[in-house]
Write a protein that binds this DNA or RNA. Structure first.
Lengths: 208, 208
DNA sequence: TGACTTCTGGCACACTGTGACAGAAAGGTG
DNA sequence: CACCTTTCTGTCACAGTGTGCCAGAAGTCA
């Protein structure tokens, strides 16, 4: 008996198969032109089943974001209470990078395909950013708690989170031309430096 | 003969009627639960016609954003070439505020209803932010041109635009509790001050 | 083996969004 | 006014997304 049952292993397998099939089809024939039926067809699964693995077509391109958010939130929660919030968030970004570097070659390949996709279809960036708005409100609660303020009232809390998310986004997205992991990691580090150089020391520790 | 023909006046009338019907229905029975058929029904127009006025359900909620982007881009283009880009963008924000203050009571009411809607259905914020990603890439081109750099290469260009958009977003959204125009205008001004106090002088004029 | 839980496929259904075409309404001309 | 042109509208047909429902298959455990 293995640690996880056959059922779970099978599920994860179909999940990844759907993901890979989708990414390949999207890159081959375009995002819009690819139907759920086609994706399910490749994996030999009914379209109905597809929706049991992914909430919809969007979800396929957001799995990376969702995973990244988890890593980020967890890393933030683990930082010392008295650390300036923006600094903690940048540590969270570093945790995301480390997580990426520690992932399997298959996952790396998926990530790079996803980047190509985002480059080819800019409206997908929009979807990712839209999901980012949810992440922002969750992060805002965490930051507000640490600052000891009401997230509804404190604009600075939201500014801190928004600036941090901007930094992350630019690190990941700009430029999209880069194609290897080390290059991307370097770019993210550059974005962090750029942001830190742009902000006044102590800007994120002012009281409300 | 009036300046604009009957046809155009009629079009604008149905356009606004659809918009108002939609906003009211969204607030009454929820965004998801409202169908195009219902909206078209109130205005006594066929569902097919609805799609000739708006590209889809989302579009109803994004008309404000689209208008704001126009005002912003135009204001930015009108600023002196040698002004620091972030400063120009903040002037653009001011232009948006002035535009809002100069609009008709009907438009103001629509804006306030839209805010309620965003407050009630957070995923609409996501849609708005997604559209914002497009605005960002357009602004990035304008800023890059002024900085004399390639927008693909220069991370700082994107950081400037992203920080500016963050400031705008927070000014408009936080807190959403406010219900009158003057309050909102004050909040936006506060957000601008907050951002300016957070950034190092000259941060946005560094060379690439 | 049998009983139990979970996953799957197939069906029906509501909604969004688009192309095509015929007819109505508005605009301009003699 | 009659006439023609342009533009808008409604109807129909259709592809695709996404969900509830239920019977049956497959994995799980005793």
């Amino acid at each position: 008996m293995s640690a996880v049952g056959l059922r779970e292993r099978k599920k994860e397998k179909t999940r990844l198969a759907l993901l890979d099939a989708a990414l390949d089809l999207f890159l081959e024939q375009g995002y819009e032109s690819t139907t759920i039926e086609q994706i399910a067809g490749v994996v030999e699964v009914s379209p109905r089943t597809f929706f049991r693995y992914f909430t919809g077509k969007d979800h396929l391109v957001l799995w990376f974001h969702d995973h990244g958010e988890e890593v980020l939130m967890e890393a933030f929660a683990g930082r010392p209470e008295d650390e300036p919030p923006f600094t903690s968030l940048m540590h969270g970004l570093r945790a995301m990078v480390e997580d990426m570097q520690g992932s399997t070659p298959e996952d790396t390949e998926r990530f790079l395909k996803l980047r190509q996709l985002f480059d080819k279809y800019p409206h997908l960036v929009g979807q990712s950013v839209a999901r980012g708005a949810l992440t922002e409100s969750r992060l805002a609660e965490a930051v507000a708690a640490r600052r000891g303020v009401d997230p509804e009232d404190d604009q600075l809390t939201h500014l801190i989170v928004a600036f941090a998310m901007s930094t992350m986004r630019i690190g990941f997205e700009c430029p999209r031309r880069e194609t290897t992991m080390p290059e991307i990691v370097t770019r993210i580090a550059e974005a962090v430096t750029l942001a830190e150089e742009s902000l006044r020391p102590g800007w994120d520790t002012r009281p409300a």
